[in-house]
Amino acid sequence: MIKLGADIFREIVDNYKTNIRKMQPTLLILAAGMASRYGSLKQIQEFGPSGETIIDYSIYDAINAGFGKIVFIIRENFASEFKEIFEPKLKGRIKTDYVYQEMGAFVGGHQIPAERTKPWGTAHAILCAKDAINEPFAVINADDFYGTDSFVKMAAFLKNECKPELYSVVGYQLGKTISEHGSVSRGVCSVNEAGNLAAINERTKIYKENDQIVYEEADGSKHPLPADTPVSMNFWGFDPSVFQLSQTLFNEFLEKNISNPKSEFFIPIVADEFIRRNIGQVKVLPTSAQWFGVTYKEDAPGVQASLNELVKKGEYPDNLWK
């Protein structure tokens, strides 16, 4: 039977969709932070029983969940040290690439103020990976432990659902993400009846006060938040279309904030505008997992104990890369 032009076109489209769904997603790891509160390069600190970093556990979970490439966003001044740690472990296991987040990237003709001392934030970091990623991808922080369940859910979303009109975020319960040693920054999520993100607000000072959790605003006012409030821990799922949107929004951000040396272009800004401008939806992938991470030095012993406990339970081997 001779196929007509329309039949051939439909077959090409169907094949394209099938191939996109079979494509292994990429994991983008944000590791360019200055670790100002922690006081050292926490991204490469050893916590596991065989010297594993938190990043090692995320990569291990990502490989098992079906991710095909790791892209690290780092600063060029510690690139050699970083690569010496991770390349021997990952060679032959998964593809790797490195992107440098530099302050002058994607700023166009804007003049950067002399008092600006650090890059422009997490959404700017994603934008810096524009030329390294062509497939659906997830974004995580280097210093957060997310757990196996989150990687499995995210990989399934990226392979089967992700498209230019649908992104995702893993939603954690706020009470399971608080540090006992100081305030934390969280993207507080409002979720609609369809399970999609209605809005997200970056709260940069959340902490426990007596028996409740509060967030504090710049004027010092405090507002309570329920422990089961869904929050983003910067575990996002994106279609590559996010790069163009991020560039547009970053240009707008610079027009308004170029003179503010402490302003930051956060991922929630991009997600919120994606929804507000009716470009698409962000699906919330709920998890009841216990998050842990190292915001402060005092968090480190607890992280090490938590990892050792997971190894004892058999959830991870005592040496991830043996």
Rank of each mutant, 00 (worst) to 15 (best):
W236S: 12
G280S: 11
F265V: 06
V242M: 13
P230S: 05
V311K: 08
S263N: 06
D219T: 01
P286C: 07
A227Q: 07
P268R: 14
D239C: 11
P301V: 02
E216W: 00
V282I: 15
E273L: 14
A227I: 01
N260Q: 09
G302H: 05
V294C: 11
L307V: 07
D228R: 08
P240K: 10
N234D: 12
D211L: 04
F253D: 06
S246I: 03
L307H: 06
A227L: 03
P230M: 06
G220H: 00
G293E: 01
F266C: 10
G302W: 02
P301F: 09
P226Y: 06
I269H: 14
A271I: 12
H223P: 01
R277V: 01
D299V: 01
S232V: 07
E309Q: 07
L225R: 05
V282K: 11
Y296F: 09
N251F: 13
V294Q: 08
P286E: 12
Q304N: 07
P286F: 14
S221L: 03
E309F: 02
E273Q: 15
L307A: 05
N260C: 06
N234E: 10
P268W: 14
L307I: 14
A305H: 05
S241H: 12
P286A: 14
D299G: 02
S246Q: 14
L225H: 10
A289H: 04
S259E: 13
L285C: 10
P230E: 06
P224K: 09
K262Y: 11
L285G: 03
N257V: 01
L254R: 12
T287M: 03
R277M: 14
S241F: 14
V303K: 03
R277C: 07
E264G: 07
P226E: 07
G302M: 00
S241I: 09
E273I: 09
G293F: 08
L249G: 11
L310G: 00
H223V: 11
P224I: 04
T287Q: 03
G237T: 05
K297A: 03
V242E: 04
L310P: 00
K256L: 08
T229D: 05
S241D: 12
S221R: 07
K312V: 02
I279K: 15
P224S: 09
P226T: 03
I258D: 05
G280I: 10
A289M: 04
N260S: 11
R277W: 12
N308W: 09
T248P: 03
A300P: 00
T287P: 01
T229S: 08
W291V: 01
Q247D: 15
S221P: 01
K262F: 13
E309M: 02
A271P: 06
E309L: 02
A227E: 13
A271G: 13
E309N: 09
A227K: 11
V303S: 02
P240R: 09
D211A: 12
S241E: 08
A300C: 09
